[in-house]
Structure formats: C-alpha cells, structure tokens
C-alpha cells in the first residue's frame, strides 16, 4: 500500500513552499468572488473539501475507498431534508449531515476494514451501490427528482445566506476549518500511527496497535468530513439528488486526489479545482465528460502517479538535493 501514497518528507520538506502556497491561496480565495462566479467557486470548494477528506484515508492511511459518494451524497440528503422539511436552520442541518456521514462511515468501515487492499476497494464500492439503491427507493429522497428548493436560510439566525457573498464566505470558512482539521489530524500522534499503518501494516500490528480501530477511526473522520462537504453543497445549490451518491461520483473524488497528488495537503485541492473547472468547460463544449475523466485517469496512472503537486515536490526536492 505504501507505493500508493507519497511519503510526506520529514527532513527537507518544502514547508516554506507549502506555507507560501497556503497564504497565497487564502488571499486568492478571499478576493476571488469579485473576479469569478461565486457559485463556481463554491462548487470548487465543496469538492476540494471532499477530496481532502478522501485523501485523509487514501493518502495518510493507505485505504482506497470507492464509496465516498455515500457520505457526500448521503449527507446532502440529510441536510436538505432537515432544512427543507423540518425547517432546521442551516448550521444545524449541516451538523446533522456531518453526523449522518460519520454514521454511514462507521457502518461501511465496520465491514470494509475486514479485508485489505483491492478487496477493501471493492467492498466500499458494493456497499456504496447498496446505499444508492436505498436512496432510489427511500421516500425521503424524493426519487429521481431529488430534494429540490432547499432554502439557504439565515445562518445563526442573523446572516442571510441568500446573499451570494455571505454564502461564499461561509463556505470558505467551513472549507478552511475542514482542511485545518485534516491537517491537525494528519500531524497528530493519531496521524503518525495512521501513516505507520500505511507504510507497514504488519509492523504496526506487531508494535501492539489495534490497527482495525485506527483504520475505522480514520474512515469515520474521513466520512464525516466528506459529509460536511456534501451538506455544504446541498445548502449552496439548494438541492440534493441521486447524482451525488453514484459510483461515478466516488470515482471523480479519486480522480481529483490522484490528479492533484495523493498524500499531499494541497494536491487534492488543486485536483478538485482542475476537475471542476474542466467539467464546467466541457459542459458547454459537448465533449463527453466521462471520456475526459477516464482519459485523465489512465494518463495519471501511467505517467505521473505522484500527481501534479507530488511531482512538483519531487522536482523541488531533487533540485535541493543537488545543491
């Protein structure tokens, strides 16, 4: 499994680079809504958070989940239902969605961690498809139409999210909190153990760690954060539909992470922006999106498995090494 993920370098990490990028990135995101359509930016941020949550599992624990659409789309349904049907305020709806995502993650993880590697991927895919069929049949998802016309509402009763910029800065705040949380998890003692599991599972077992519990813990956290992204998306776009629980969606998240760089903090964000941007471009061109995503998948796997950011780091390290 270690081969899948880029080792976060300890000595000689381009930390200065990462912090500069983070600073520039946040600054850019603060002014961006004045230059680019906020709705596009918000979509990008939701998917970037989803990809980061996914990367917590793949990049730092070495588990390839093919079922993250379940948490993303499932949480979107829960939030949409709570806000629209029960009349909950948006913040409560989002928390509910996040909790729902975590719960789904607990159930899926409970079964999936019984097998490793390729079987793990297949089990998450199968369980995710099961959840998809459940959503097709369950009345509260409103079938093919999905839950439409979800009100954005007043955040904490004071901030009107129907104002585009309010919505945007709220999304940005949640995104930053989510990514910060992931960064903290990854660099905590818990995160170190996850990485040692990724590098060598049997050694982690022999050191006395209950690997299954750590894996499940990582799975639930990743699911909760993916749920947060889904809930946010439901509020932004004011609907929740079957699209977000399909296996294609799970595949898209994998692509974003792979393209950006598995096991890097910034990579999934870059990957998500590129994929969302590409899809927006293709939507008007008539070129089928699935062919494009499929081709990017194949090219990534064949020629740059490190992803864009991972490749950048590797080049920088090489150059530093030469000095």
């Amino acid at each position: 499994m270690a081969g899948l993920s880029r080792r976060e370098t300890s000595a000689g990490t381009p930390a200065w680079l990462e912090w500069t990028l983070v600073g520039l990135g946040i600054a850019a995101l603060l002014v961006a809504p004045f230059l680019v359509y906020p709705i596009f930016l918000m979509k990008m941020l939701c998917f970037a958070l989803l990809a980061c949550a996914f990367n917590l599992l793949l990049g730092y624990t070495g588990l390839l989940s093919f079922g993250h659409a379940t948490f993303f789309g499932g949480a979107a349904y829960f939030t949409a239902h709570a806000v629209k049907v029960w009349g909950w305020p948006p913040e409560a709806g989002i928390l509910l969605g996040m909790a729902g995502g975590a719960l789904l993650g607990l159930v899926m993880g409970f079964f999936a961690i019984r097998r490793q590697g390729i079987y793990f991927a297949m089990i998450t895919l199968a369980l995710s498809q099961m959840f998809f069929f459940f959503c097709v049949q369950a009345p509260f998802t409103e079938g093919e139409d999905g839950i439409q016309g979800v009100p954005r509402g007043m955040l904490f009763g004071v901030l009107d999210l129907n104002v585009s910029l309010n919505m945007y800065y709220f999304v940005l705040a949640v995104f930053l909190i989510g990514v910060f949380a992931i960064w903290r998890i990854v660099n905590s003692p818990f995160g170190m153990i996850l990485r040692s599991i990724r590098e060598n599972e049997s050694r982690a077992i022999s050191l006395g760690y209950s690997v299954a519990n750590y894996k499940l813990g990582a799975f639930v956290m990743s699911a909760a954060l993916a749920g947060l992204a889904g809930s946010l998306k439901a509020i932004v776009f004011q609907f929740a539909t079957l699209t977000d629980v399909t296996w294609q969606m799970s595949g898209e998240v994998i692509l974003m992470t792979l393209l950006g760089g598995i096991g890097t903090m910034v990579g999934p964000i870059v990957g998500a922006s590129l994929v969302v941007g590409l899809e927006n471009t293709l939507a008007t061109s008539g070129f089928p999106v699935t062919i494009a995503t499929g081709l990017i998948f194949m090219v990534c796997v064949l020629v740059f498995r490190r992803g864009i950011v991972g490749e950048l780091y590797a080049r920088l390290l090489k150059r530093q090494g030469k000095h």
Binding site: M1, A2, G3, L4, L64, G117, I118, A121, Q248, G251, I254, L258, P288, V289, T290, I291, A292, T293, G294, L295, I296, F297, M298, C300, V301, L302, R305
Partner: peptide, 28 residues
C-alpha cells in the same frame, strides 16, 4: 504490463479509467 511493479490499486484505477472511456464513447 507497465503497472505490475506498482501497487495493485493502480491496476484497478487504470481499468476504471478505461471503463469510463469505453462507456463514454458508446454513450456519445
């Protein structure tokens, strides 16, 4: 044949991409 030395998950991801392309072409 270029992926045998890598993690088996890359084979899965490559064939996933291939499946998307094939399906996309016929859908188109």
């Amino acid at each position: 044949s270029r992926l045998y030395d890598t993690d088996p998950l890359y084979g899965l991801l490559f064939t996933f991409g291939l499946a998307l392309v094939l399906e996309g072409i016929f859908r188109y």
